[in-house]
Design a binder for these strands. Sequence first.
DNA 1: TAAAATTTTTAGGTTTGTCTAAATTTATTT
DNA 2: AAATAAATTTAGACAAACCTAAAAATTTTA
Lengths: 219, 219
Amino acid sequence: MNLSTSEENYIKSIYHLQLVSNIVNTNSLAKELNTKAASVTDMLKKLKTKKLIQYERYYGFKLNDKGIQTALIIIRRHRLWEVFLVSKLGFDWDKVHIIAEDLEHVSSMELIKKLDTYLGRPKIDPHGDPIPDVNGRLPVIKQMNLFKLPLKKTGVVSSVGNQSPQMLEMLKHYGIGIGSQIKINKVFDFDKSIEIKLLKQPACIISEPVAKNIFVYDE
Amino acid sequence: MNLSTSEENYIKSIYHLQLVSNIVNTNSLAKELNTKAASVTDMLKKLKTKKLIQYERYYGFKLNDKGIQTALIIIRRHRLWEVFLVSKLGFDWDKVHIIAEDLEHVSSMELIKKLDTYLGRPKIDPHGDPIPDVNGRLPVIKQMNLFKLPLKKTGVVSSVGNQSPQMLEMLKHYGIGIGSQIKINKVFDFDKSIEIKLLKQPACIISEPVAKNIFVYDE
DNA sequence: TAAAATTTTTAGGTTTGTCTAAATTTATTT
DNA sequence: AAATAAATTTAGACAAACCTAAAAATTTTA
């Protein structure tokens, strides 16, 4: 099916929202897309006639199987381009999202297939998010919240939950990136802030909201 | 200035047409863009208010300096992506134009700068066309029509004039590509067809219209 | 040079995706 | 269970980019 850039953006946003809330409502999608509720309603009608979503007036909506499949293809394109931008062009990982937002809408199958091969069939993007395969299957990546990592045990940072520029800028400041080896020295019960230690860096303290968004492999 | 994909396509097409004819007319642009004359007129008004073209009703139009500069930036993006698709992703040179048509509208300056560096600051694209530099300057490439190549002298194919899929498909069939070493064995006066010889290939005959579109370096 | 043919523009309409403002429906209070 | 509040949808407009059909300007031809 041939989708417009706008339709693709709606599908992608619905996908992300329904990962959290199962059923999605108009206002939250409007907020996510920086648009108005009325515009969302218009698009929902269109996506329904294209059989990409389940939608009941005044109740809510979510992607059906075809919609999920479509979302995963778009996400695959996005994340492959992010890998390209970081690993080949040398972008910082906090700069690539906006550019990948444009590149992801170039829909040549052949292009994405060859890009994937060229990049060595990567399984995760520079933020640690899994890249769906050609068939839209997500690789399962076992990871845990940084809080669950036992004291003094080294973990490897695998992804970050919040990927706002603000968050990514801060992680860069701390020297935390995907693949960083990280250890918890101490948890301060007062505010749940934690002291962490990274290789070749002095220990530092991060707040609970930050720590909550860091995920690690256990090893 | 922020331009839409459509505006960029118009500017690019006007650029190509005015290389040949100095002043461009509505119908030829409509044909080039597979659209209707009325649509062209609409867009011309817009491009005029944006001060990218000189335009007089019923007379004709062409890009002004600002328009030419803009066109060269778009062409730079297009040709850099073509280099990427062929030299990094392994596409055949006759397959990349359509994909580059999409990629060229992704307008991040930083992206194109880094892509250029990554590709090694190429001066020509896979069709042998020169790539404008960051400032929109075209490298001068001295080449001549295959017909001007003296008999039995070896030349190097540097570009092709007609880049339709039909032409490119045929060149691929003959084994003619950018960089091919080529020699004229004989010119048949009857129809101006010529017998050519490429390295490691048997001699073959190409028609005048084909030969006219092949350009070579003298060496 | 007047008529015919061509080119170009205007007038008015369509689609996509957006908006505001008003009307509905659903949810929450009191 | 009304009344109020919030969320959602509809109605009607708008801009961009396109279209067809008709009008206007230019060019060609007889």
